[in-house]
């Protein structure tokens, strides 16, 4: 499936790790390291899927999610967090995330989430 995935996290190593996993699925990966950069990329690159951390410099994952869901974009978003609380999980679910991943996640959890998010957005 020819697709473009935007990965957003302030940890370079984690972004690279996710990129390798996503490229393993045959997708193209673009990277951003903070909130504003991610939002600029959404508008410039029109990714098919966004994988973002919850805690980011200058913004958070939910802000990115709201921009990504704006019409006519409607890009699906997977949220990752190293600091899981029931409140964050609830906020993510209310905002309509495609998947919610707790770090450290298993690679198959990530690939599964990416696959199903892309599948639903195509159908």
């Amino acid at each position: 499936m020819p697709c473009k995935v935007l990965v957003v996290d302030d940890e370079l190593d984690l972004v690279d790790t996710c990129a390798r996993l996503i490229e393993g699925l045959g997708c193209v990966c673009i990277k951003a390291f903070d909130g504003p950069e991610a939002i600029a990329m959404i508008h410039a690159e029109h990714p098919d899927l966004i994988l973002t951390d919850f805690n980011l410099p200058h913004g958070d994952g939910l802000q990115i999610l709201r921009r990504a869901h704006e019409k006519p974009l409607a890009i699906p978003v997977i949220l990752m967090t190293g600091y899981h609380t029931p409140e964050i999980a609830q906020a993510a679910s209310d905002a309509g995330v495609s998947a919610y991943l707790r770090k450290p996640f298993l690679t198959r959890e990530l690939t599964q989430a990416v696959r199903s998010a892309l599948h639903f957005s195509k159908s």
């Binding site: 940890e11 190593d13 984690l14 790790t17 996710c18 390798r20 996993l21 805690n55 990752m80 190293g82 600091y83 899981h84 609380t85 707790r102 770090k103 450290p104 996640f105 298993l106 690679t107 990530l110």
Partner: peptide, 24 residues
């Protein structure tokens, strides 16, 4: 705990996923 969780889980996510990538 929140601080520790956040600071630890990022590097642990990298270690865990890289170890899995190496296994693959």
């Amino acid at each position: 705990a929140a601080g520790v969780a956040h600071e630890l889980n990022n590097p642990l996510a990298i270690i865990s996923a890289r170890a899995e990538l190496m296994m693959a």
